[in-house]
């Protein structure tokens, strides 16, 4: 077993073994999926058509924004990164492996939702499964990048929650998960363009579910990959081995550059 696979296997198991990660990776997304699928179609019949993409996007938001950052902050504070540095674990692995293992958990949850939703909740299946899978991966990449970036720049657990919620809550409310982008008031629609979930839901609805696009969906999908990569590169650039190295010349505000790929759409849409 190579160092990378050994590390990846451990991180993947941690995603189930750690109670908080188990909650964010599986219990919270799947629990809400069941609850929403039982309740929402009665309130809003249109929701049934988007159960699969909405609930998968929600699962990705929970895993990446609520699950990914905190273990990174805790590891840095506990001196685990220092131990890793001494033993030759590259910074790239420290950032990449949790992201990849989270994406694998996301794929498991996405598969469960995609298989069970048509059976139990009469939800329509995606009409284009390969593209659907590509959007799931793109969304997971985009939000994993942001999750890792939050874990890198956050100085403590309290601020980690704050940073995560700054993206999570708007994503839930105006990011296309609960309400379609087309129903948003103009100002909210502009803010929504800064959120990866908006691009994910637009791509899901138009490219995978057979609906219509609110804006150019393929471009949005590409933005998800570019945004994820940008966030990841920034996280690598801003990475610190321990919390005592407070005199870093690389200011955490640089993390805001991760939103540049999304912000460019403000000029287009």
């Amino acid at each position: 077993m190579t160092a990378f696979t050994s590390h990846f296997a451990f991180e993947f198991r941690t995603g189930i073994r750690n109670k908080n990660l188990l909650l964010m990776n599986y219990l919270f997304p799947l629990g809400l999926y069941v609850m929403m699928s039982l309740i929402m179609p009665g309130i809003n019949p249109l929701f049934q058509a988007t159960i699969i993409p909405s609930m998968i996007t929600f699962g990705i938001l929970a895993s990446t924004l609520l699950g990914l950052p905190d273990p990174l902050v805790q590891a840095r504070e506990a001196g685990i990164f220092r131990s890793y540095k001494i033993n030759g674990v590259p910074a790239l692995n420290i950032l990449l492996i949790p992201a990849l293992s989270t994406i694998l958990h996301i794929l498991v949850v996405a598969t469960i939702i995609t298989i069970t939703a048509p059976i139990f909740f009469d939800a329509p299946l995606p009409v284009n499964l390969p593209v659907f899978a590509l959007i799931v991966v793109g969304t997971a990449v985009a939000l994993s990048g942001l999750g890792i970036l939050i874990g890198v720049i956050s100085p403590n657990a309290r601020l980690t929650v704050l940073y995560s919620q700054v993206i999570f809550l708007p994503s839930m409310i105006i990011g296309g998960v609960m309400l379609p982008y087309s129903m948003l008031p103009p100002v909210a629609a502009k803010v929504a363009l800064l959120l990866p979930s908006t691009y994910a839901m637009n791509a899901f609805n138009s490219l995978a579910m057979g609906g219509t696009a609110d804006f150019y969906a393929w471009g949005g999908l590409l933005t998800l990959f570019v945004g994820g990569l940008t966030a990841f590169i920034l996280a690598w650039y801003l990475f610190r081995w321990d919390s005592q190295n407070t005199g870093s010349r690389r200011h955490p505000v640089l993390a805001l550059l991760a939103f540049v790929p999304y912000a460019t759409w403000l000029l287009i849409v």
């Binding site: 073994r17 273990p71 131990s83």
Partner: peptide, 11 residues
């Protein structure tokens, strides 16, 4: 290096 404390993930 045997660090004085911690240095390993809890799980």
């Amino acid at each position: 290096v045997q660090l004085q404390s911690g240095g390993l993930p809890a799980s």
